[in-house]
Design a protein around this nucleic acid. Sequence first.
DNA 1: AACCACGCTGAGAGCGCTTCCAGAAGTGCT
DNA 2: AGCACTTCTGGAAGCGCTCTCAGCGTGGTT
Lengths: 331, 331
Amino acid sequence: MKRPTLEAVAARAGVSRATVSRVVNGQLTVTPQIRDAVMRAVDELGYVPNSAARSLVTQRTDSVALVVSEPPTRVFSEDPMFSTVIRSASLELEAADRQVVLMLAGSPKSHARIERYVAGGHVDGVMLISMHGADPLPAALARMGVPVVSYGRPAVPVPLPYVDNDNVGGAEKAVRHLLDRGRRRIATIAGPQDMIGGQDRLTGYRDALRDSDRRSIVAVGDFTRQSGAVAMRHLLQDDPHLDAVFVANDLMAIGALQALRQAGRRVPDDVAVVGFDDIEAARYTEPPLTTIRHPVSEQAAAMVRLLLGLLRGGPAASVVLPTELVVRDSA
Amino acid sequence: MKRPTLEAVAARAGVSRATVSRVVNGQLTVTPQIRDAVMRAVDELGYVPNSAARSLVTQRTDSVALVVSEPPTRVFSEDPMFSTVIRSASLELEAADRQVVLMLAGSPKSHARIERYVAGGHVDGVMLISMHGADPLPAALARMGVPVVSYGRPAVPVPLPYVDNDNVGGAEKAVRHLLDRGRRRIATIAGPQDMIGGQDRLTGYRDALRDSDRRSIVAVGDFTRQSGAVAMRHLLQDDPHLDAVFVANDLMAIGALQALRQAGRRVPDDVAVVGFDDIEAARYTEPPLTTIRHPVSEQAAAMVRLLLGLLRGGPAASVVLPTELVVRDSA
DNA sequence: AACCACGCTGAGAGCGCTTCCAGAAGTGCT
DNA sequence: AGCACTTCTGGAAGCGCTCTCAGCGTGGTT
C-alpha cells in the first residue's frame, strides 16, 4: 500500500504530471474542467504531495527551527513563559503553513548538531530563544546566511533582528511607581547579569533612581525563587530601613515575599514589593503581587512575523514591545 | 554561494559519488585511505548532506512529530508538565539523532492539517500527547500505518501503544495514606471525567475506599486552581464534617487549600489534603502539600524509546510507570 | 483565406542522493 | 602461471516533484 504519486493522479485524471502539479499548487492557468478532473483524482486516491521531492527541487522546506538555548540555571524550562512562547510561535507559524522543528541547545555538542542541521538547509529560517550572554550560537547562525531572528535582544552585539520587550522602561515604571507612593529607600533584587533581561532591568532601576536623589541598593539573584529569598535577607541585613524593593522577576519576588514574612515585615505597609513578568502565580501570592506585565505571546508572534517577513525578503527591523504596570496589593 | 553536493566532494576527493555516499553514511567497505581522502574533502568543502534528497530515496525523514492535543480548558499549556514532557522527549530524540516536529492540535482544522502532514510521510512516527477523551486524532493516526505512540493511555480504546503512569495505583496510595492516618470522612475532588487521568484517579479513590467501609464524597473540577477552590466549598457544604480530601491534581489542591483557609479549617488538623502530580508549587504551599509524584520526564523518555523501538520494527508494548507518595505537611 | 498571437498542455530535464549491479583489482590456491 | 574467489569502486538508474520550453489548437485580424 504505497502512497500515490503525481504520476498516478495524472494517469487517473488522464493528464500529464505537469498539469497535476499546476493544479495542486494552485496555478490558475488550468482549464476549470481539467482542474476539476484532477481534483477528483486527487481526492479519490488520497494524494498528498511528497515534501522531500518537493523541497528537493524548490529548495524550500516550509519549516523553521525553534532553537531554545537553556541557561545554566534551568529556570527557563520550568518557566511558564517557555511554553507560552512555544505555543504562541507554533500557532502563528501554523497559520502561515510552516512547520516548527524544535531544537534544544543545551550543550556545546548540541550546538554543533544545530549548526550542521541549519547549514544543511533543513529549515528555511531560525528562531532563537537564548537568554544568556555567552551563547556563541546566535553569532554562528547569523554568519551562515540563513534568516535568523531572536526572542529577546541578544546579549552580545550581533547583527540579528530581534523582538524584545522594553525591560528598561518596565523597570523604570516599577521604580517610578514606588517613588510615587512615597517610598524613600528602594532596593532591587537584580537578575543574573549574564542575561540581557537581568542587565536591562537593573539599568532601568538605576535610570529611574538617578533622576531622584535616592541611592541604589542592589542584590543579585539568578531568577529562581530561592535566590530571591536569599537576596532579600541580604538586603534586609544591609539596610534594615529599606521600605521598598523592585525585584527583577516574579519568581524571585515570591521568594522575597517569603523572606519578608519570615523577617516580620508587613507587605506593603513596611516594605512595598514590585515584581516583573506577571506570571500566573503573582495573582495568588499573599498579598497579590504588583508587577510589570509584558506581552509574551505577542512577542513570540511578532518574532514569527519578523522571520516570515525576512523569508519573503523583507527588512530586518527589530521590534520592542511596551510593558505595563499591574497594580495589585504588594505596592 | 551554493552548498556543496556529493558531486563536488567526489570531484575533490577524486572518487565517485557512490563512494562518497558510502563514507558519509559510515559504511565500512571503503578502504581507509580513500575514506580519509573523502573525509578531508568533506571537511574542506563543509559538505552537509541534503536531507530532502536523502529522504526522497530512503523514504525516511529521521524526524518524528510531537503532536500536542490541547484540552478545551487549556490547563495543559499553563501546566509545567507540558514543558517537562517536551523537553525530555526532545532530549531523548536528539540523542537518537531524530528531529522533533512540534504540532499543536487545537481545532478540527488543525487535525486535518496534521493528518495530511503525517499521511504525507513527512515524519517517520508520531508521539501523541492527548488528554481528553473525545479526541478523534489518535484513532485517525493509528489507522494510517504510521507508528504512533501516546503519552498517557488513550481515553477511548484504540490500538495504540502508550506510556502512562499508574494513576489508579497512585490515587489508591493517596487514599490509603489518609486511611492510615485515621481519617474517617475522605472526600475527593476529581478531575474532568473526559480525561483519562481524571477517570483513573477517581477509580483509584473509589477502589481504595471500597475496601474500607467509608462512603465516597465526590466533587468534580477541571484541573484548574479555581475549580479546586469551588469544588472544596461545595464539599464543605455537602459534608461539613469531612476530615480529609484527595485532590486529583496539585493545581486544584492549591485551590482547595485556599478555600479551606477561607472556611477557617486548619490543614492538616481539621482536614488533611493530598494532591497529585508533585508540581514545583506543591513545595511552597501553606502547609507544604503531600502529594503523589509521577515521573514525567521518564514517562516522556519511555515514550520516545517505545516509538524508536517501533521504528526499528519492535513490539508495541505499552508501559505503565509507578508513582510515589511524597509526604509533606498537609496530610 | 492565410497568418499571427495567445492560452493551455505535455515532454523532459534535473534537483541531490542511495543503491544495485557489474567490473576491476587483489588474494590465495593448485 | 593460471584460476577461482573475494573485496572494493564506479556507472547508472531512479526516488517524486517542479518548471522551462516547445507545440498544439483556437480565435481574431488583415
